[in-house]
Write a protein that binds this DNA or RNA. Structure first.
Lengths: 354, 354
DNA sequence: TGTTAGCAGTCGTCATGATCGAGTGCTAAT
DNA sequence: ATTAGCACTCGATCATGACGACTGCTAACA
């Protein structure tokens, strides 16, 4: 299920230490306040004394799983502590069946286009995980030409609508150097449809079709633009990242602080960083958990992400997941991401599966 | 420029009172702290004593333009005070020319589709006004059929792509009851294109064309779906409201409070209320200023909006503007909204103008 | 009559300091 | 290995009082 950036060192925790670590993490996730030895005893139903627990807590801190904000405070999980928790300790529960039903219902209820569909996914995910969600629309990794339409807007402009095999739609305004009327536009688009219909970017470039080489000025420039768009469609994670549930994240107590809040908003509004992380996910398998921005920019230090690629690899796939503070409800979020991923896999399989 | 929900009663302020009110509002917008008599004297360069100013402040409070948070605090503008300010007192400056240049540059630099265009508008507006921005993509009030394309996805599904005259693109999945191959789909779309191309919703309904009445099962159901989509395109403010610059708003001091922050996020995330306000704007002319949610839901009590319709009325128009706390920088925001509106008017005129 | 100086009074803000208690680590006994 | 006990640390809370930013009012003044 989870990636492991670091192999968690030569750690071998005793069963009791694992119990204690689990209680500390769960309790801290719940209350957002440092967890002391007596709380562990009470909540965890331990039948050892607080002193023993204190010793164990000390050991866990020594090993790097816990930290103390200040001398007389309880313990707080470190990134490594969370990592161990999600890998070995968290219970992998399924979403309650009624909730599954409700979600399925929402998807089947509406006839949707891809964008609305993606938006709905983001909303459902945010609501279910009670966290901020991210979803990229599904798209193919190999752009394959499906259909081109050129529509005259005015004397100097036309609208180019390009549909790819993954049913993604790309539109662009074309500035014309000469006046070209709709009849001519239709002729050009028909010709190109016939010539490159069903081909991938590579196919087109490698094509030895005699007519391709002899395209005239305007036709050639349209094709060039088409190739550019197809290239863009392959490279980009997505035209847009759909987001929802920001309010869930910002009502967490860690964001009472102004600077923390601004950090969160920057992370969420700037496309740059998200693009980076999400596009990396496209190559992965299964639910990935990134804690404290492991490996990537320091801007994500205090955030965790639970992400998963979805769809049919190559044909129509995207990434979905949730973001939150490192102290996020991993259990619930993982369940939600996993379930929604499976659902999307299913839906896309039905549409694009061979 | 501005709408006036209330005709500002029988108010006649003396010149001095207007000066003082102006200083109080400007100063409060700047510092977010109540403004006292001595501050008015210092900032406003008044050559009367603080005592006199106090008298005037009392009068302004009496008249409903100012309020006191508590006995020994300075004055704070009321909604009515802001209203008077934006109607009579605010200086209508233009955006500095270098800034205008930068904005123009951004728009001309990129070849864009409508959605990217709208997104850029939101970003520019947020950045210029240093506030949260809202933009709806331009669309025609009378949906006019332009082009239909049906694309087979699999045996039971096809993708319907509908382009309207305003160059808005609408896509939808169609579930087929029978297997229909691409050839048949093309035949149907060609037929419909020929039949209803260039017509409005009304035209189509009123049409007496003999072939329209004799459409068979599948063809009829496609047309029906087309009409549904066109209807939807007319009614909705927009498929999507583009938002940006939320971080600007949330870093205002009034949103340090958790409940205020959640109120802001609800306002921004929920489409319902925004839809309502924005669609009302489509019928208006010029920059509209809504202070403290005047007239509408109480959920907007502490917020102001500066909105403006843009585009070519009927052919391709939308709404853009900014949102902020009632204590927002009206001057700058108004300039920004006005300038961006003019720019968009220009751009759309170039594209769709007769 | 409009303006102003002066003054008593209100009330939030801030720094101070005492108290409380949650939680620790250590030690010595079991 | 576990545990009871204890001294200690340190943030959170709260009352206190000084401060000062305001006010409104009154009485004198131009």
């Amino acid at each position: 299920m989870a990636s492991s950036a670091e192999p968690n060192k030569g750690v071998s925790l005793t069963p009791r230490q694992r119990d204690i670590l689990k209680v500390v993490v769960q309790r801290y996730i719940e209350t957002a306040t440092p967890v002391g030895s007596s709380a562990v005893q009470a909540v965890g139903g331990m039948d050892v004394s607080t002193a023993t627990i204190r010793n164990e807590l000390g050991a866990l801190e020594e090993a790097g799983f816990l930290a103390q904000p200040h001398t007389s405070a309880g313990r707080v999980p470190t990134a490594q502590g969370y990592r161990y928790y999600v890998e070995h300790l968290v219970e992998r529960t399924d979403l309650p069946v009624p909730e599954q039903r409700m979600i399925q219902h929402q998807f089947h209820q509406l006839r949707l286009d891809m964008d609305q569909w993606t938006r709905l996914t983001a909303a459902v995910l945010a609501h279910t995980a009670r966290a901020a969600s991210l979803v990229t629309p599904p798209h193919a990794t190999n752009a394959r030409f499906r259909h081109l339409e050129l529509i005259s807007i005015n004397d100097a402009t036309c609208l180019m609508v390009l549909v790819l095999q993954d049913s993604s739609i790309h539109q662009e305004m074309l500035m014309l150097s000469d006046v070209v009327d709709q009849g001519e536009l239709s002729r050009v688009s028909n010709k190109l449809n016939a010539l490159v219909g069903g081909l991938t970017l590579r196919d087109i470039k490698d094509s030895t079709h005699p007519e391709l080489a002899t395209l005239r000025g305007f036709e050639a420039s349209v094709l060039e633009r088409v190739l550019l768009v197809m290239k863009g469609a392959e490279r980009r994670t997505a035209q847009e990242i759909y987001r929802d549930g920001l309010s869930h994240m910002l009502s967490e107590p860690e964001f009472a602080d102004v600077t923390k809040r601004e950090q969160a908003l920057r992370l969420f509004e700037q496309r740059r960083l998200l693009d980076l992380v999400l596009s990396r996910m496209l190559g992965a398998t299964g639910v990935q958990i990134i804690i404290g921005g492991e490996g990537s920019q320091s801007e994500m230090e205090d955030f965790s992400m639970i992400l998963s690629p979805y769809g049919v690899r190559g044909k129509a796939s995207g990434v979905l997941g949730v973001v939150g503070p490192t102290r996020m409800a991993y259990g619930r979020s993982i369940s939600a991401v996993r379930y929604v991923t499976e659902l999307m896999d299913q839906l896309i399989q039905d549409l694009f599966g061979q």
